[in-house]
Design a protein around this nucleic acid. Structure first.
Lengths: 232, 232
DNA sequence: CAATTTAATCGTACGACGTACGAGTCAATC
DNA sequence: GATTGACTCGTACGTCGTACGATTAAATTG
């Protein structure tokens, strides 16, 4: 029976202590494991982007045969899902729960969210297409709890959460996209400036020229929070 | 010289009137053209999704050989870009420019934007990854002009536009993603309900259970606009 | 201890894909 | 009639995900 490892977590099982293995090629790599596969997939994605992740290349980096991966994962899509969720873990706010400042807490979590994804730009283009992993759900739960504690009515909670989610997703995917290749960007800017008679107001608003993405995110988020829960 | 068609628009050139062509298979298809390729690509994407678009299949639908496409487009990516932008055309508000109601105008354009993308769910996962086409830029220009006319300060214009863009992109990609496959969704809901002790507030807010996406979009957009330009 | 089962690895091979290359077909032009 | 240029397409190559089954080594059982 060629049963695959499924729902269960990786057992690890620490096969062999240090014995250098009797096989011809002196394998000094540690054995395969889900953790190692996912971690290496993240490395590879960071280095080569979404299109750079090939099962053979991933296996190479792991010092394994391509087909060995399939004992640990069902298919390539699963690798994407796992890599994505692994990057979205949240460690919580720094100070000792200043549970007063709900607004600061939300801003911190969302900025951290965005930062995590921008550290791994491929994640931005992956997230919208994938199911919600446990780390994503945890962030949503925290968001719900904080907003609810801040007095947002249950009837508005749903909308509030989605609005913030939408904002983060939109901001991050857009930013990550413009990040790829500075030359592309300058080319696009030049093209746009050439077309500035077609888009005069865009030109005037310096929409694509300013580079203060962090500031724009923060300010936009403030606007949105103002709308969701007007200060006093 | 195997020069490719480039920047120039498709000349059409109406070769042959009705002559049934002397070749063996009686080709009654009209000749290839960029328009026909893009239109058929949209059909195919609607029917089969992003992964369903293969150059061979597209050529089949067009009654052509796979390699014939490459006279009209540079590569598959270009097909994606063209299909995406073709779906994002905006025809403007219905009534005869009630240029008073800037807020209504913005809401109309953004709701139309979202609707266009949801009519072609593949576009939602494509847009964040692609350069801005002319139709997208037109919408941004309209947005800029309207906000500016509504009295939004030039200093805030940039942030306002990005915030609205982010909201639309996030809302649409998320919605389009959840749309694919009802069975997947019920399965996910069941999985979530099973995990409801881990995510109690999500459960309580009915985050993934309510289906009023349109209402949530509209309400969230209102909140955001409230924050961007407080009424009076 | 030997026999068996289980966990894990990996070589080979297959079908599908994007597309490079160059030969082919036709209408328009000289 | 010869040439040119716009357009079509069959073949072929390299690459990808992964099905299949052989192989090995550890764990378990007698």
């Amino acid at each position: 029976m060629a049963a695959k490892r499924s729902g269960a977590e990786s057992k690890g099982s620490a096969r062999r202590g240090v014995s250098p293995r009797s096989g011809q090629p002196p394998r000094n790599e540690p054995p395969l494991s889900l953790e190692r596969i996912v971690a290496t997939a993240v490395e590879l994605l960071d280095a080569e982007g979404v299109d750079g992740l090939k099962m053979r290349r991933l296996a190479d980096r792991l010092g394994a045969g391509a087909m060995s991966l399939y004992w640990h994962v069902g298919n390539k899509e699963e690798v994407f899902d796992l890599a994505l969720d692994s990057v979205l873990e949240y460690r919580g706010p720094p100070e000792i729960d200043a549970s007063q400042d709900w607004r600061g807490e939300i801003v911190h979590m969302l900025e951290d969210w965005r930062a995590s994804m921008l550290r791994h730009p491929w994640s931005a283009s992956l997230l919208p297409r994938r199911a919600l992993g446990p780390n994503t759900l945890s962030r949503l739960e925290l968001l719900s709890k904080t907003l609810s504690g801040a007095g947002v009515a249950d009837a508005d909670l749903n909308v509030a959460i989605w609005s913030l989610w939408n904002f983060v997703i939109g901001a991050t995917t857009t930013r990550a996209n413009f990040d790829l290749s500075d030359d592309d960007r300058t080319a696009a800017q030049q093209r746009l400036t050439g077309l500035s008679q077609d888009y005069p107001t865009i030109e005037r608003s310096r929409l694509l020229l300013d580079n203060d993405w962090d500031g724009a995110f923060r300010k936009g988020l403030d606007f949105l929070l103002d709308g969701l829960a007007p200060r006093q």
